[in-house]
């Protein structure tokens, strides 16, 4: 899923400094699961912003509302009763960065992102998330024991490990596991380490962001 993280409150306060009536919109999708922008986090951020503004003698009328998803126009539509009557002068979205863009596309309002959309990942343990994919658009992990060297090797090497791999850790930081050590261990355990003798050829990055903004059209699903 998409993993995101709330921006520092100071930054959010600065964004909405000139506004008095703000709609704070959460999302029940990925950001609820990664505890960044669901109903609960909306409540906490809303409260914090109101407290800060009240203390500053510049109270903020902030209403909280969490949508089923913000990456679907169908749900964005549900904001119409709130956003089409001048009740709010700005929107603060707690979804991944698709949300604020969809809201801005639909309503002529100032929209701010309250989160930093960080990566595609999964949770390692409660409260810890890590990156597992860089959406290169042409998955090749089956060549590497099912591990992704594009997103998980600091240098995206396809023929690693580099000379900096040491004791299972990446040269960049002790906090980063060297994915090439993990690939080697996994291939060894699978009895496939010989496959690592083969040079992995130069990758076609045109399916990645390098080919320009991407779009998927599924004719079978179109109405």
């Amino acid at each position: 899923m998409v993993i995101a993280e709330r921006k520092p409150i100071e930054e959010i306060l600065a964004m909405v400094a000139d506004f008095k009536k703000v709609l704070l919109v959460g999302c029940k999708g990925c950001v609820t699961v990664c505890c960044a922008g669901g109903t609960k986090e909306v409540g906490i951020l809303g409260s914090a912003l109101r407290i800060a503004r009240k203390k500053a003698g510049n109270p903020l009328a902030l209403v909280e509302h969490t949508l089923e998803r913000q990456c679907d126009p169908e749900y964005i539509e549900q904001l119409a009763p709130m956003l089409e009557n001048g009740e709010f002068d700005a929107v603060l979205s707690m979804a991944c960065s698709v949300g604020p863009q969809f809201i801005a596309k639909r309503y002529l309002k100032q929209v701010f992102p309250a989160l930093n959309t960080t990566f595609i990942g999964g949770s390692l343990e409660h409260g810890v998330w890590a990156e597992f994919c860089q959406s290169c658009g042409n998955c090749i992990i089956h060549n590497f024991g099912g591990l992704c060297p594009i997103s998980r090797c600091s240098k995206s090497l396809m023929n690693g490990p580099c000379g900096g791999s040491s004791g299972g850790k990446c040269e960049v930081s002790n906090e980063i596991d060297c994915v090439w050590q993990l690939i080697y261990d996994r291939m060894t355990a699978l009895g496939q380490v010989d496959r690592m003798r083969k040079i992995f050829p130069i990758k076609d990055w045109s399916t990645s962001r390098d080919g320009g903004p991407r779009k998927i059209t599924r004719e079978d699903l179109k109405l």
Partner: peptide, 26 residues
């Protein structure tokens, strides 16, 4: 392949790694 940019004087830069050292030799 090159040392990672994190070690240098511009850790804020965008790195490339379009090819790796093996593919550069090729």
């Amino acid at each position: 392949s090159g040392d990672h940019n994190k070690f240098g004087d511009h850790p804020q830069c965008k790195n490339v790694f379009d090819l790796d050292s093996m593919q550069l030799i090729m």
